[in-house]
Every structure is written in structure tokens, then in C-alpha cells.
């Protein structure tokens, strides 16, 4: 097998679809801005998952048609959303009590890097960013019962993102439990990254070649 051939694996929609498969009915879930938001599209409405948004929205529903948008109803990404039956609004301190108090079953964030000890870097790419913006990422990473990351396996220029040690400013220590990339699904365990599943057409050798950290097979 030629490991120099770059494996593509899943596209971004397929990654979101794969992540959604593992979210069971009854979970309270916060999806970060960007690719994580797209996961909700693959959770059918009859599987009752309660989506939370930092700005005090619990029970968020799908994006409304353009002509049915409510100017008063946005999510943390400032996109117009809907509220499903059973939903509620709270103020910011209560919203973050849900996050910080460990009441969310899952948070899914994007990231620049994830280390094999679960460290995550996802808010700044240097120590001297002009005006770094952290938002709720640190609260979510530290507070949710589980943190998953969904991201491309490497940067556009081929830089490795599954690393032994994060080089960018950290968001949280040892927080990530699972990473979903275009190449597969990887759990963070005491041994480091363990391959749960590889995307169709992706070999273990290819995934390893695109990772700095070791990818272990399940014991």
C-alpha cells in the first residue's frame, strides 16, 4: 500500500453524518460554530436530542426558511434558528450553568490540534494574535460530560492536527474523548488515540502517515 497517496475519506457532510450516528435520544448537546453545527442536520427530529446554544437557547430546532426567520432568535454563531416544542430560553449565567455544571451530555467543537492525552487547542493560532476570541470554548471543553472534536485530519497544507503535544494556545487539558476526521473516528484513551473506524477507502497506514501522534488499534 502506498502511504504517500493522500487518502480523502469522508467529505465534511459525511463527517457530520458519521458524528450524528453516535448521538442517542435524550442527550443534551452543544454544537460549536462551523462544522459541528452541521451535525444537527443528521439527527432526525424523531430522535429527541436537545440542542443547546450558549446564548440561552435550549431545544434549538433547524434553520428556518428565509421568509420565516425570527429576528429575535439566533444561536451562538449569530445564525437565525428555530425553537422546537419543549424548548426554553434562559439568561447567560443559567446557560453556562448548564455547560459548567456538567449538565450537557456532549459538546462537539472544531479544533486546530488535538493531542493524544486529550488536550485541545482551538481558539488562537499564536500567542500574539491581534485580538484573540475565545467565546465559550473553554467553558464547553471543561464543562461538558464529553467533548468530541470534528475536524479535517490535516491542515490544507498538510500540517498534522492529531499531535503528541499541542503547539497552539490550549483551550483545555485532557478534555477530548473522541475525534471525527475525514479519515475516521478516533477515541482518546489512556493509550492515546485508538482507531474506532476508518472512512471507506482509508487504510491504517494512510491515517498514521497523516498523524503525528500514534494511532493504536483497539486492544
Amino acid at each position: 500500500m502506498d502511504t504517500k497517496v493522500e487518502a480523502k475519506g469522508w467529505n465534511r457532510l459525511e463527517m457530520a453524518e458519521r458524528a450524528a450516528q453516535d448521538i442517542p435520544e435524550g442527550w443534551y448537546v452543544n454544537l460549536g460554530i462551523g462544522m459541528p453545527t452541521g451535525i444537527a442536520d443528521y439527527v432526525p427530529m424523531d430522535r429527541e436530542v436537545v440542542f443547546h446554544s450558549e446564548n440561552g437557547v435550549l431545544g434549538m430546532g433547524p434553520k428556518p426558511p428565509e421568509d420565516q426567520r425570527d429576528p429575535w432568535l439566533i444561536n451562538a454563531g449569530k445564525q437565525h434558528v428555530t425553537l422546537r416544542k419543549g424548548g426554553s430560553f434562559v439568561h447567560h449565567a443559567d446557560s453556562f450553568a448548564m455547560i459548567r455544571g456538567g449538565h450537557l451530555d456532549l459538546c462537539v467543537l472544531g479544533a486546530f490540534e488535538v493531542a493524544d492525552n486529550g488536550d485541545i487547542a482551538n481558539w488562537a493560532t499564536s500567542d500574539n494574535d491581534a485580538a484573540p476570541a475565545v467565546g465559550g470554548a473553554m467553558d464547553l471543553a471543561a464543562g461538558a460530560k464529553r467533548l468530541w472534536v470534528i475536524m479535517e485530519h490535516t491542515t490544507k497544507s498538510g500540517g498534522k492536527k492529531l499531535v503528541k503535544k499541542c503547539t497552539y494556545p490550549l483551550t483545555a487539558l485532557g478534555a477530548v474523548k473522541r475525534v471525527i476526521t475525514n479519515l475516521g473516528v478516533f477515541d482518546v484513551t489512556e493509550r492515546g488515540f485508538v482507531v474506532v473506524e476508518l472512512a471507506p477507502g482509508v487504510t491504517l497506514e494512510q491515517a498514521r502517515a497523516q498523524s503525528e501522534a500514534e494511532l493504536h488499534l483497539p486492544a
Binding site: E54, V134, L140, A142
Partner: peptide, 28 residues
């Protein structure tokens, strides 16, 4: 961090001088 900001404000309103939180441990 957004939640720390909300809680710092909540604390001020509730007469709490300071609090301890895991958010931000090990970061800048």
C-alpha cells in the same frame, strides 16, 4: 471565557467576591 464572564457578573450581583472554576485551567 464567555461562561466565566457570565459567572463573574452573576457573582457580583449575588455578593460573591470570587469563585473557583475548572474553565481555563492550564491555558493562558
Amino acid at each position: 471565557p464567555q461562561g466565566t464572564m457570565a459567572e463573574r457578573i452573576r457573582a457580583a450581583g449575588a455578593g460573591v467576591g470570587a469563585f473557583f472554576t475548572p474553565t481555563g485551567v492550564g491555558t493562558k
